[in-house]
Design a protein around this nucleic acid. Structure first.
Length: 290
DNA sequence: AAGGCGGGGAA
DNA sequence: TTCCCAGCCTT
């Protein structure tokens, strides 16, 4: 494997970094935490406006913790995976109650908080607090697969698998390692994209193991096809949640029948939402949790 | 290790 | 239509 010079990444990042809210000077650790929750499986462009609204409304963890879940879910809007909103609310409560309303810096303390896994814990430790850790998300995994391992696509997701590879590349310098982590993510997001990478714009093109091998096609088992969304429970859950968000009063089952005509399906969806804490039975129908 | 979990935008 | 997205959690 060719040694990948970190300066290729950090020099490129210094020029080409997108102007994003969480890269503004003085952006708070709490803001970084909120942004990372929202960015779990949701694209940057959809997150930015919601994030700014949240931080105006709830500028510290305690502010969010004091809000009723129903308002949190309404403010989450259509970002998707609303369980994240509940997890973020629970996370804010834990920080307010057990960490003096200050976002923890230690990776293990962050991992102990609801909704925070291997990626998010390290992202907060690095980007909010400047600590030195490898940060590996889907973008970094793809850049490592190509530039270092010389294959078209990474192996099936295994959250921690690429941590050692990223750690081996990470500069010792505290300022440089932060830019390297951010730069690798940025390259994966805007240059080394999954479908059609723009190698002519890539700072790693000259040393990329995949390019040097002639950009071979993906060789290996095809990735698991994700379940169809149209007609799925996920889609139906989303439709019910949209109804509940839009109403200040309980929504009667008869109204939900417009979205969920089959009684068996309706029951399954509602029980699932109830189990996840996203909906509750009320007098006359269903509501968001108070 | 696998599957569930939203929704939107791009190819 | 299909793929992909700054993943996490449960089984």
């Amino acid at each position: 494997m060719t040694a990948l010079d970190p300066a290729l990444v950090t020099d490129w990042f210094a020029v080409h970094a997108r102007d994003l809210p969480w890269r503004r000077p003085g952006f708070s650790a709490w803001g970084t935490l909120v942004s990372e929750f929202m960015l779990q499986q949701t694209q940057v462009a959809r997150v930015v406006p919601i994030l700014e609204e949240w931080l105006r409304r709830w500028p510290t963890p305690a502010d969010l913790a004091a809000a009723p879940p129903a308002e949190v879910l309404r403010a989450w809007g259509r970002l998707g995976y609303p369980r994240r909103a509940l997890a973020l609310h629970a996370c804010a409560t834990a920080i307010a109650d057990r960490h003096g309303n200050v976002v923890p810096e230690d990776v293990d303390e962050l991992l102990a908080l609801p909704g925070i896994g291997d990626y998010t814990a390290r992202a907060i430790a690095v980007f909010a607090h400047g600590h030195r850790h490898p940060v590996v998300d889907t973008n970094v995994r793809r850049v490592i697969a190509r530039a270092v391992q010389g294959v078209a696509q990474p192996e099936a997701p295994a959250a921690r698998r690429d941590l050692p590879a990223m750690a081996a590349l990470l500069p010792d310098d505290l300022v440089e390692q932060r830019a390297f982590n951010a730069g690798m993510m940025e390259i994966g997001a805007v240059v080394c994209t999954s479908r059609s990478p723009r190698c002519d714009e890539c700072p790693l093109a000259a040393v990329c193991a995949w390019r040097l091998a002639g950009s071979p096609a993906h060789d290996g088992p095809p990735p698991r096809r994700q379940a169809r969304f149209e007609g799925s429970d996920r889609q139906l859950r989303g439709r019910v949640m949209a109804e509940l968000r839009a109403s200040d009063v309980p929504v009667a089952e008869a109204e939900l029948a417009a979205v969920l005509p089959d009684p068996g399906v309706r029951s399954r969806i509602l029980v699932g939402l109830e189990r996840d804490g996203l909906a509750t039975r009320a007098e006359g129908g269903w509501t968001l949790p108070a």
